[in-house]
Design a protein around this nucleic acid. Structure first.
Lengths: 278, 278
DNA sequence: CCGCACCGGTGCT
DNA sequence: TAGCACCGGTGCG
């Protein structure tokens, strides 16, 4: 099946989801297959169909492909482990404001803060949406029946994964959003800093809720990063301090990113999720 | 003169500095020339010499070209305005630790903080180096004689600009580093967030020095961003809060980036620097 | 059509 | 050699 379509301007365009399902043949790759090898192979197939596809188009596509593979791996891990939390894909920040996952009481506190800082100082609270939110399993059990593993990969199953978060809008109490995950196929010294920014801001908001709700010993919001390759400098940079914790007298300095994982196969994905989803 | 050389692996490579000087003919472009147009034109010239040069290579090159144009514009602005501060190019974080610009007393306080957070929490204080540091004019006057405008652009003048910061190592007291500037030819919603991260971290360090030195009304560290194009969402995202200021009781929420400028010509550069360099 | 968030190939030290 | 910091062309809602 063809996964190249003509855009409105007539330029050939890769349809990510159709390409993904077609090239995988509807099945998950073997546990030990290197994801980087897999994507290289897929790139060749894409260019066999349409050689004018640019490297940047493939970059764009790899991002979603990697997120989808991990989304399926996470889902299946949760399906197989009754106590595991659930990691859900999130859309971009224009389409969805993550803080609306919280129950209205908390959501309103974040709104208050947003309004306060903009009025008082003309300042914003902006970051890109994290790739995944981790939702507590007890909450998941309230809103899903049995979680069935995904074995057939189709555009419908992808679309399900991508809209699943909607079931949790206004449903999460303070400790029911366990954390977030940022996912990148590759890192660069500049690009990787987007992750601590995101982690810092989400944790500062969490700290704000803590203060407003007079919570004394919160379990903490977790922030994770996953990439097909993690060098020591990558790990080090991601462990940068969440700056709000530097000036908060009550608490120890806290990392913007709690833990990082090199995931270049589904086997490594399982290992990572066994740590991330508890 | 040729500005393409063969790398060790035999691949043709653009020599940024030689290309820049050659293509400019050693002279600054007219005040109203659009920098994006200029670079487009230069790209064509580069590819006339060597058509295998990749788009990513040109991306890399544009970054330094833009920084150099602005470095010259900033230098000349300071040369022509006796009260203006000076903006100096900085090398990357491996080559130079920005905090060593501070006098040893302050530098040591930052070192202490670094050691404390790593020992106590295993956490780092990492960001990429800002593109420019802004040094107070009084200090500049101590270490330079008359500042002469740059009119001839050569590899030597570029190299001078790039090493000028060395004169200020261990020379800056608390209020003599006025701020930093981050410079990008173009932004993306993900890439632009590197800037608030950098701004946040530098401001948190400044706040730490303030606390340790018992300074009551500091004038504040400024962080600026410059790009050839700034959309409203860009401006908004860059005005994100420096997270440490959210949880500091004493102070108002503070933006990670104080002001942003669209600079796509030397004329606009002058306007920007007339605001940035006071 | 714009905004989001994607990332891989660089010149240089 | 590896690490830094560069950015422009995307698929999609």
């Amino acid at each position: 099946m063809s996964f190249i379509k003509s855009s409105s301007s007539g330029k050939p365009q890769v349809q990510k989801n159709i390409a993904f399902c077609t090239l995988l043949g509807g099945l998950l790759p073997d546990d030990d297959i290197l994801i980087t090898d897999l994507f290289n192979h897929f790139d060749n197939k894409v260019r066999e169909q349409e050689k004018s596809i640019s490297r940047e188009a493939l970059s764009n596509v790899h991002g979603d492909w990697y997120e989808w593979l991990l989304a399926i791996a996470a889902w299946n891990y949760t399906a197989e482990n009754p106590n595991a939390n659930l990691a859900l894909l999130l859309p971009n920040v224009i389409q969805f404001d993550v803080s609306t996952l919280y129950v209205e009481r908390l959501n309103k506190l974040i709104d208050d803060l947003r309004n306060k800082v903009i009025t008082v100082s003309g300042v914003q609270l902006i970051t890109s949406n994290p790739d995944f939110v981790i939702v507590n399993r007890d909450l998941v059990n309230q809103y899903f029946g049995n979680i069935e593993p995904i074995t057939k990969i189709s555009t419908t199953s992808l679309s399900n994964l991508e809209t699943m978060y909607q079931r949790f809008i206004n449903k999460c109490d303070y400790e029911q959003i366990e954390g977030y995950i940022s996912v990148k196929t590759s890192l660069r010294p500049d690009r990787r800093l987007q992750i601590p920014h995101e982690g810092s801001l989400m944790k500062a908001l969490y700290a704000h809720l803590q203060t407003r709700e007079w919570i004394t010993n919160p379990k903490g919001l977790k922030y994770y990063a996953i990439a097909t390759r993690m060098t020591p400098p990558d790990r080090s940079a991601l462990k940068t301090v969440a700056t709000h914790s530097l000036t908060t007298v009550f608490s120890l300095p806290q990392a913007a990113v709690d833990n990082v994982f090199e995931v270049n196969s589904l086997k490594q994905a399982k290992q990572a999720f066994s740590s991330i989803l508890v």
